[in-house]
Computed example of a mutant assay.
Amino acid sequence: MNSKFLGTGVALVTPFNADLSIDHEALTNIVNFNIDNGTDYLVICGTTGESVTLTKAEKKQVVETIAKANNGRVPMVLGIGGNNTALVIDEIKNTDLSQIDAILSVSPYYSKPTQEGIYQHFKAVSEACPVDIILYNVPGRTSKNIEAETTIRMANDFKNVVGIKEAGNNMSQYFELIKNKPEDFLIISGDDDLALGVVLAGGAGVISVIGQGFPKDFSEMIRLGLKGEAKEAYKLYYKIVDAIGYIFEENNPAGIKGVFEALNLCADTVRLPLVPASQALKSKITAFVNNY
């Protein structure tokens, strides 16, 4: 199994200054905070990183800042996906992937392709991509589920497709994937609330939002889960679970940025169309962090 992506990966936020420019100092601090507290790998420019609001130049700067802070300590995964296959391939070909261990590629959104369309999209991406690929299924955002059968077909057919970040919040689909996958294919939870259950059922870990706010306990929880130590792992789960609800209550990443603001790691500034967490939600988040 590709041990690079076992355990806890975190979908890093992109911190912004009050003028909406990128706060590179805060980003460096968040990377160090995570690596120092046991996070296993970093996921850059995903949904949580507000990648759709970043220019090409800004994405490049974000990767450079994270790579510099990381200094080769843990693997790095870069989000490159979309609903224009030709454009995704173009981005792969024109991005410096020399420090990137894999790309995380979301299933085409908005266009609602058939299962065959999803397969052909990723076939084209696989042929163009020089590094490993982690598929990303998030039907709540794409409005189209990658059926378990399609994922397994891609896992068997495309050598560089090494895993899937599954975020359908559907436990029976996780079970189907874990049961039928090729031996070395990674089923990675994209649902923070289900991650421990997925790992205990045979999943490879998580790409988490909440994990970056509480990396020590969250990564330890997943580590215990991978060893089958359910009782100890669930103690940590119950310690964190309320925060998982809070950070997704309004929008992501406003919630997790609220956590970081309470931890004095970055401001809660987000770019439109997102807005910061409401005062009521921020109060709950701050109280949780202070009591933690």
Rank of each mutant, 00 (worst) to 15 (best):
N94W: 08
D184Q: 13
P276D: 14
T53W: 12
C45Y: 08
D157M: 09
K60T: 13
P139H: 10
N264E: 12
A195N: 07
L6D: 01
N291M: 06
N160Q: 08
G228N: 05
G225L: 03
E232Q: 15
Y109S: 15
I35A: 03
E261C: 00
E127K: 15
F218H: 07
V43W: 02
V206S: 01
V131I: 15
G213W: 03
A201L: 05
K284N: 05
A267S: 15
D184R: 10
F288M: 03
V43A: 03
F16A: 08
N170A: 08
G213S: 03
K56A: 14
K4V: 00
N156M: 07
G140N: 08
V62A: 05
G203V: 05
L12F: 08
H121R: 11
T47F: 14
K59A: 02
M171T: 11
N84K: 14
Q173A: 07
K235G: 03
N84C: 15
T85L: 00
S126F: 09
G255Y: 07
S3K: 13
S111Q: 10
I187A: 03
L196D: 04
Q61M: 13
Y136K: 04
N180M: 06
K56N: 13
A128T: 11
I30W: 08
F175W: 01
Q120E: 14
L87R: 13
N160M: 06
I66V: 15
T53Y: 11
P75F: 06
K59R: 15
K235V: 14
A230K: 11
E166P: 00
T39I: 11
A11I: 03
F158W: 10
E232Y: 08
T269H: 14
V161N: 00
T8W: 07
G245C: 04
I89A: 01
V13T: 12
D23S: 12
I22T: 11
K235L: 13
D40Y: 05
A280R: 03
E220P: 00
K235N: 13
A155I: 07
L20T: 15
K68Y: 09
L177F: 09
H121G: 08
V162C: 02
V198W: 04
Y238C: 06
C266K: 01
A204T: 07
K123G: 07
N290S: 10
K4G: 00
H121V: 10
I35Y: 05
E50N: 12
I89W: 04
